[in-house]
């Protein structure tokens, strides 16, 4: 075999990248390396990490119980007590420690955001895989269903679900998830169809792999990139939507639940006198959504095969 000849003796010089005895760099590891160097990703990751930390450590950070008005709080129709040593951000319109409300609001947003996005992702992926793996009439049928879902405005859907199930966290999650299903389904299907036409899928079938194996171990994993990115982006949107639904009075019915959107609603009447009541929860929503969006965008770039070298 003449194949790869060892370099002639004289040129014992270091050889360019070739297979030497060290672990290879997989696609995921390569993406991770690029992410660590991307300032956008770092900012996004820091914001998201801070949000997660706050949400998880809420009881430690808050100091008070959410949704419970403090006795003798001094809230008047024209003003709320400002910052004090006991209440760093003061009290909100209903006489609860604002910091506590914001911190527990993060927790609420996280729970609803993650659960609803997971639901949407699961259902959307199931439909997408169905359409993408089988094609033909299955594809047509699934995609028509998805089109119908897409044609209903998400708020209308939310109103109907809330009307059907009553105001509860569950209906909020379902409403948000329902709006996400078509996004994920279409994305995954399109991505899978694109992958199905690629050479390595043809190569896999030519090797005699079962159709199921080809789909599950080649087509699907290679199609997931855009879906993961989208999930990150959608998580940011979901947090905004939770707030929007609360704002419209379609949120969680329990008045004791700390929720950023609801804080906004209550702050509305005091916009002139105490704008910080609206600004702070608004900023929380915006910053969290921004964090997820930045992270999603840089993930998209890191996973792009064209960026790999």
């Amino acid at each position: 075999m003449t194949a790869v000849l060892p370099p002639p003796a004289a040129a014992g010089a270091p050889s360019a990248p070739g297979p030497v005895d060290e672990p290879g760099v997989s696609l995921v590891r390569g993406a991770w390396r690029r992410l660590r160097r991307d300032p956008t990703a770092i900012v996004g990751a820091v914001l998201v990490a801070a949000f997660l930390l706050v949400a998880l450590a809420a009881p430690l950070l808050a100091g008070y119980e959410p949704g419970r008005a403090l006795p003798g709080n001094g809230v008047t129709p024209s003003s709320v007590p400002g910052p004090s040593p006991e209440h760093p951000l003061g009290l909100d319109a209903s006489g609860v420690d604002l910091l506590t409300q914001l911190v527990y609001g993060a927790r609420q947003s996280l729970v609803i955001g993650v659960v609803s996005t997971s639901l949407g992702l699961a259902a959307g992926m199931a439909l997408g895989v169905l359409a993408g793996a089988f094609g033909g009439w299955v594809d047509v049928a699934v995609m028509r269903v998805v089109d119908i879902m897409l044609s209903i405005p998400s708020l209308l859907l939310a109103v109907s679900i809330a009307a059907l199930l009553g105001q509860s966290p569950i209906s909020v999650m379902l409403a948000i998830a329902a709006a996400q299903v078509p996004i994920f389904a279409r994305l995954l299907r399109g991505s899978m169809l694109a992958q199905r036409g690629s050479d390595y899928v043809l190569a896999a079938s030519s090797l005699g792999l079962r159709h199921r194996t080809v789909v599950m171990s080649h087509v699907l994993p290679n199609s997931l990139g855009p879906v993961i990115v989208q999930a990150t982006l959608v998580l940011g949107t979901a947090i905004i939507e939770v707030a929007a639904l609360s704002y419209l009075g379609l949120g969680d019915g329990n008045p004791a639940t700390a929720e950023w959107g609801r804080l906004l609603v209550r702050a509305q009447a005091r916009l002139q006198s105490d704008p910080h009541l609206a600004l702070l929860p608004g900023a929380c929503i915006a910053v969290t959504a921004l964090g997820f969006t930045l992270l999603g965008e840089s993930l998209r770039e890191a996973l792009d095969p064209k960026g790999r070298r």
């Binding site: 003449t2 790869v4 370099p7 002639p8 004289a10 040129a11 010089a13 050889s15 360019a16 070739g18």
Partner: peptide, 18 residues
């Protein structure tokens, strides 16, 4: 033999030597 990637820097040797 080898591939166009198997080069050494011209500052050390003939790049084609490997």
């Amino acid at each position: 033999p080898g591939t166009p990637r198997d080069v050494v820097a011209w500052s050390e040797a003939c790049a084609f030597a490997p």
